[in-house]
Design a protein around this nucleic acid. Structure first.
Lengths: 245, 245
DNA sequence: AACTGTGAATGACTTCACAGCC
DNA sequence: GGCTGTGAAGTCATTCACAGTT
């Protein structure tokens, strides 16, 4: 982690202290990605967008925070605070204009243009993801599908020809892929991840059951189906058995 | 503030579940499931279990919080605090015994016995989930797969014959299903969910792109693939474009 | 000397409650 | 009257830092 901080350390160029006594300046703090919105709020925006899209398609033009929150499964105060980070778009005493707000949320989420997605791993899960209509319906296009198995390379899945994963970096650059979905077995995930990062992609969604390491500045989200079940199992046990074994 | 949660679906088979005295409790305060462990810690346990299992299979018998944390992708202090909720199992000056700790975490997660899982929806996703080896490998058995489509009912997927979703409640009770995975289209998810809850199942994993409502006491986790991509898209935009549109 | 376990400090997120506007 | 937008208060989670143990 290299942190260039050309501020008050002007004369310290020669003596790069190895001992480092009681240093007063925590250097790592300087690099702050400007978080215009709390992460927790960002994670709820897609839910709001879904609700707004649904209402809009049913011809509803206006809704209160109460109604929207109910549909999205959150509290009204939380929804209002989340939306307030996008600016004021409601009308006091009235509510929110559904279409205006929908566009606003959509813009905030960067869904103005279709984003090209590549899926690595064409096994069970990769296959299902490529066919998943939810992607196309929500602003993403699967432009590439890659796998290591010679049996799969060259076959067509969901209208896309499966490429050899050896060509990964090349494909990512040629197609200007914005987001990569990793759906490989666990033991290949980190290697694939490194290649993806090396190719300049900075948004990764990982389905492999491994903790992946990415450099600063790369956004990684992980979904592990097995873990989800295990978390549920914890609560199941907490209920029926007594706590602590 | 009207919080409508009067749903108490007629739980017919409630014989041993008599732990509900008539408390004149004020509001939200009383309905506290005894959280022996913070939810955030629970959500990290599966990751620790995976690391411990891996180390164990490689013949490693001991590890420090530093090492475990690195592999799990968290900080050492956080890992220690998480594990402390399970009791003291490390040795100061030494570290943790891998096998002992693995068993302890496994027990805490309720994975002593195989838990029977049912999947509702045998489309792309349900199909992939049924075939997903990660489930079987981590303490779960898919005992039923159900769908509404006559074309699918009766076919065999992953060694299980697809049942008609009309028989859902019956199947759940007959097979004593502990956890239900909902992988239906969004517009059927709440209906399925209600049946599942009515049948007495209290752990639900939802993949449908809808916010589901469940009564108090039912644990619901939702994974929405489209939302995950949208969250990544947000960060992608935050980087390249200027903030606020 | 090395490392855990944990109170205390900090930080993040949620909820409250009300001023301001329609 | 109804509803949003938001500072303030409250709750939950992470990180620090060190006493305690081997």
């Amino acid at each position: 982690m290299t942190v260039p901080s050309p501020e008050h350390t002007a004369d310290a160029a020669g003596s790069d202290d190895a001992a480092r006594p009681d240093d007063v300046a925590p250097l790592e703090d300087v690099v702050q990605i400007r978080r215009s919105m709390p992460q927790a709020s960002v994670e709820r925006l897609p839910g709001y967008l879904r609700v707004l899209t649904e209402l809009s398609s049913h011809g509803v033009t206006s809704a209160s925070s109460q109604q929207l929150a109910e549909l999205a499964g959150v509290g009204p105060a939380q929804l209002r605070k989340d939306l307030s980070h996008l600016g004021s778009h409601g009308r006091r005493g009235v509510g929110y204009d559904v279409d205006t707000l929908r566009e606003r949320v959509q813009t905030a989420l960067g869904l103005v243009v279709e984003l090209p997605v590549a899926i690595v791993g064409a096994g069970n899960l990769g296959h299902a993801l490529a066919n998943y209509s939810g992607f196309g319906a929500r602003g993403f296009t699967v432009v590439a599908l890659l796998d290591a198995s010679p049996a799969l390379v060259g076959t067509e899945v969901a209208g896309v020809v499966v490429e050899d994963v050896a060509r990964l970096a090349e494909v990512l650059r040629d197609l200007e892929v914005a987001i990569v979905v990793i759906a490989t077995p666990g033991d290949q995930a980190q290697r694939v991840c490194d290649v993806v990062v090396g190719a300049g992609v900075r948004e990764i969604l990982n389905f492999a059951p491994r903790a992946l390491h990415v450099p600063e500045g790369v956004e990684l989200r992980s979904v592990d189906l097995g873990s989800e079940l295990q978390i549920l199992a914890f609560h199941s046990r907490e209920r029926s058995g007594r706590p602590q074994g």
